[in-house]
Nucleic acid binder design. Structure first.
Lengths: 226, 226
DNA sequence: ATACAAAATACTGTATACAATCCGGGCGCC
DNA sequence: GGCGCCCGGATTGTATACAGTATTTTGTAT
C-alpha cells in the first residue's frame, strides 16, 4: 500500500478506508475543508498516497454521517449545515435523549452509575483545564455512558451519528466560558436524577439541557453573522 | 458493463450499485437470502454479471441499513434480527413517530391533509384487495405523508431507515387478517386527530399503533417458534 | 484417533486501468 | 450579438488485477 509516511500517523494496520475517513473527518471538523468545498477522489487519493478505492469508501461513510453531500455523477462536497438543519437535528436528539435517559433510569446498574459519576468528574476537570478537544471528548463520554446504559444498541448508534452533525458547532459552543459553568451544573443535576432513578426529573433536565444548547448555538451563530 | 439480461430488469441507466442494492435487498426481504447467510462479493458479482466494485458498495449500503452485518476482513452476512433488536427499533420508532405526528399536527398544510386522506383510502382499498405487496406499500405511503409533513428531513430519513429493519416482519404481520381491520381503524383515527390538529390525541393513537404492532409481531414470532 | 502444524485456498482489501458521463469553452449559425 | 451545438477535458462509475490475511484442509506425529 506504500502510504509515504505522511499526515496519517494513527495506528497502522487499520483498514485504509478508516484512516482516510478519520483524516477527512478531522479536516472537515477543523474547517480545513470548508463547507461547499468539493472532495475529488483523485486529488485526495494522491494527497494521501493511497488509491481511489479507499477514498471512495471513506467519502461514502462521511455521506452517511451527513458531513458531506453526495451528488450522483458529481461527487461529494462538504455539507453546508443550515440553522434549520441544526434545529432539526436537535429536535430529534431531544426525543431520543429523553428516551435514552428514561431507559437508563430504569435499567442502569451500579457499575454504570459509577462510570457516570466518573464521566461527570472528568468533564468537570476538563472545564477547569480549558483544552477544548478534551472538553468535547469528555462531554461525549458523559453522554455516551447514558446512551450505553439505555441498553439499546440501535439507539446508541443513531445518537452517536446525530452528534457528529453538530460537532463543528459544539467545538465553538464549548469555548464560550459562561455556558461551561451551566453545563457542569446541568450534568451534575442529571447525574443526581439518574442516581435516584427519577425518570421524570431526568427527562425534564435533559430537555432543558438540549434546549439550552439550541439557544446557545443559535445565539452564537447569530453573533457570527453580524 | 455487459450485464447479461438477467434478474435485474429494473429501469436501466441507474448506477449499478443501486441496481445491485435493490436486487440484494429484495432477496433478503423475501428470504431468498436467509439470515446468517454469507454475501460473497465475487459470487454475487458473477451471479449478477457485474464486477465486484458495485457489489461492494451495495453491500455497504445494506450494512448501513442494518440488513446485513459487516465484519471486517470477513465480509458480510444477512443480519439476524433478534426479538430484542425488534423491540429496540420499535422503541425508537415510537419516540420518533410521536415527534413526527406532533409536528405534523402543527404545521401540516391543506395539501398534505388531502394527501393523508388519499393515503388512508389507498390503504383501505389495499386491505380489501388482498395483495400483500400493495398493502405494505400503501402502509408505507400513509406513514410517509406524516413523516414528510413533519418538515424535518433528517427525521424522515431516520424513520425510513428504521422501517427497513422491520420490513421482513411486516410482510408476515400484514397477512394476519384480524390485524388488518384494526389497522384500518387505527389509521382512520389518526387521520381524524391530525385533521383536528389535536396533537395530544394523535400522540396517544400513534403510541397505541406502535404498541399494537409490537405485541402483534411478538405474538407472531412466538407462534412461529412453536 | 486426535491434536497440532503447515500449506493451499478463498476471500477481502487495495491498486490501477478503462468506460461513460457531465461540464465548459469555442465556434458556427441564425 | 445571442443562442445552440459540438468537442475536449475532467471526474465519477465500473472492471480487473494484485496483495495480504484468515480459514480450511491435509498431513504428520503423538
Amino acid at each position: 500500500m506504500m502510504m509515504e509516511e505522511f499526515e496519517v500517523n494513527a495506528s497502522e494496520f487499520l483498514p485504509l478506508r478508516e484512516v482516510v475517513y478519520m483524516t477527512l473527518r478531522k479536516a472537515i471538523l477543523t474547517e480545513k475543508l470548508r463547507p461547499g468545498e468539493r472532495l475529488m477522489e483523485n486529488t485526495i487519493a494522491q494527497k494521501l498516497g493511497v488509491s481511489r478505492t479507499p477514498v471512495r469508501e471513506a467519502i461514502r461513510m462521511l455521506g452517511d454521517e451527513g458531513l458531506v453531500d453526495l451528488i450522483p455523477r458529481r461527487g461529494a462536497q462538504v455539507a453546508q449545515i443550515s440553522l434549520q438543519e441544526l434545529k432539526d437535528v436537535l429536535e430529534i436528539r431531544k426525543s431520543l435523549e429523553v428516551l435514552a435517559t428514561e431507559r437508563a433510569c430504569e435499567i442502569m446498574d451500579e457499575e454504570e452509575m459509577y462510570a457516570l459519576r466518573r464521566a461527570e468528574e472528568r468533564f468537570d476537570t476538563a472545564v477547569r483545564g480549558g483544552d477544548p478537544t478534551e472538553l468535547a471528548e469528555a462531554d461525549v463520554a458523559f453522554h455516551d455512558v447514558i446512551y450505553t446504559a439505555a441498553g439499546n444498541r440501535r439507539l446508541l448508534s443513531i445518537l452517536s451519528n446525530l452528534r457528529e452533525q453538530m460537532y463543528r458547532f459544539r467545538l465553538e459552543y464549548l469555548k464560550q466560558p459562561d455556558t461551561l459553568a451551566n453545563l457542569v451544573e446541568e450534568h451534575r443535576a442529571i447525574v443526581g436524577a439518574v442516581e435516584k432513578r427519577d425518570a421524570e426529573a431526568a427527562k425534564a433536565l435533559i430537555i432543558a439541557h438540549i434546549d439550552n444548547q439550541k439557544t446557545g448555538i443559535s445565539r452564537m451563530l447569530a453573533g457570527k453573522e453580524a
